[in-house]
Amino acid sequence: MSFFKKLKEKITKQTDTVTEKFKEGLTKTRDNFSSKVNELVARYRKVDEEFFEELEEILIQADVGFDTVMQLIDELKMEVKRKNIQDSKDIQSVISEKLVEIYREADETSTEINIQENALTVILFVGVNGVGKTTTIGKLAHKYKSEGKTVLLAAGDTFRAGAIEQLEVWGDRVGVEVIKQAAGSDPAAVMFDAVHSAKARNADILLCDTAGRLQNKVNLMKELEKVKKVIEREVPGAPHEVLLVLDATTGQNALIQAKTFKEATNVSGIVLSKLDGTAKGGIVLAIRNELKIPVKLVGLGEKMDDLQEFDAEKYVYGLFSELIDQEEA
């Protein structure tokens, strides 16, 4: 049985709504990608340089990282040579197989959020400006609250106008407490406060917001390191997760973001936000391939429950389901 068949069977057995959500969220992406590959294969009978150039463009168009695309194309070319493939139809399955491989290769890293049993879990959110850190925190707070956990939010973005208020609105909506100080105060001090409040209230989960910062601002990255250090010092083993929020519309720069934030704060996972537009979020492929950071959560809409745990297989299925169906037919 082919890999895709297995994947399909596994996925279709879980007829839950999550898979549907994934498929729904990725509809635009999927339509673009699969139909383009199909169309390409239909148009080119022979596998030649031009064929590869167009395939390269299809992948680039999905914002798949540049180096990853080059690597992928090289591997495909080798495979074509090795198997002596000439008909473009025969390459279709090789393409999808290679793509999925990238996800699977990095699969030894868990995509689950590291939640502590019977102890405080601290999650730190980092990222550039405007990616959706605060919104993600609001959604995640809602999820944990409805699972019966005690959640606390730390308003660590003391810089941007209205940021504290934004988190407070989420706190009200979800019904969880927000630990804050005045705008302009030291974010490390806010974290110190928040961690101690969380301990005193016996909270299960503390979600820490930080100000958006561009990764090339050395001083701001240093500030972030300090924030993390305060958490480390006050709660041994914390932060249990450092989640980098990435905007799915971001292009090649997302890779640099992931790399730099990883260096500064040892990012343990990625939240891919705004995947409900027409953007493909293909950069995730590159990040897994080149930096081995797993995607843990995906933002698929603006509603409170539109944040999903990332499941590589479901994501791949959502992306390539048309290809998979076709292979079977």
Partner: peptide
Amino acid sequence: DAMTGQDAVNV
């Protein structure tokens, strides 16, 4: 956003 990828065109 200057960091926008390929989707900038559609937007």
